[in-house]
Write a protein that binds this DNA or RNA. Structure first.
Length: 156
DNA sequence: GCCAACGTTGGC
DNA sequence: GCCAACGTTGGC
């Protein structure tokens, strides 16, 4: 089982938006590395963090699950769509997406500012300088560590 | 194939 | 709003 991180701007699509739907196609990714992860590596049942970017408090707000493996992102074929890409052909699609489903929202998010101070997460891709991938793998150790932060009892 | 120019991402 | 980092584009 692999673990992932999905970035989204909460003004556009937040974890509460995901909670409100049965499942959601993760469309609009137009980066080859991210495309490869979705097309080749994500498997049904994999879990991912839901990360809020470009907002006052960037961080991980909850967990989602892959419910459909990579298939062509049809919004690339739609001239009227925001992420239309004339180079992507139906016979040979350039862009792929997966469907994801809400699993849970953390009581308190794990903020980027907090993660930066955690030695255990020093190697995490998300925290590397200049990283701009909107979809990326997360080391299972890091995934479990972060998840455990959210379920531990408050310190006395 | 190189690389400058440009556009985008995303934290601050 | 600023700007660093990065990806893409296009001229040569």
């Amino acid at each position: 089982m692999n673990y992932w991180l999905f970035k989204s701007e909460p003004d556009v699509f937040s974890i509460d938006d995901l909670k409100a739907v049965a499942s959601e196609p993760w469309d609009g990714v137009r980066n080859y590395q991210a495309r490869n992860f979705m097309r080749d590596d994500m498997k049904k049942g994999d879990l991912g963090f839901f990360y809020h970017s470009n907002t006052k408090e960037p961080g991980i707000y909850g967990i989602l699950k892959i419910v459909r493996e990579g298939y062509p992102d049809h919004t690339a074929f739609d001239k009227t769509a925001k992420y239309f890409d004339p180079k992507s052909k139906k016979e040979k699609p350039t862009w792929y997406m997966v469907d994801v489903k809400f699993v849970k929202k953390f009581k308190k998010p794990v903020l980027l500012s907090e993660m930066k101070d955690m030695p255990a997460l020093a190697e995490m891709k998300l925290l590397q300088k200049g990283n701009r991938l909107s979809v990326m793998p997360v080391d299972p150790k890091n995934f479990k560590y972060i998840e455990s932060l959210t379920s531990s009892l408050p310190k006395t």
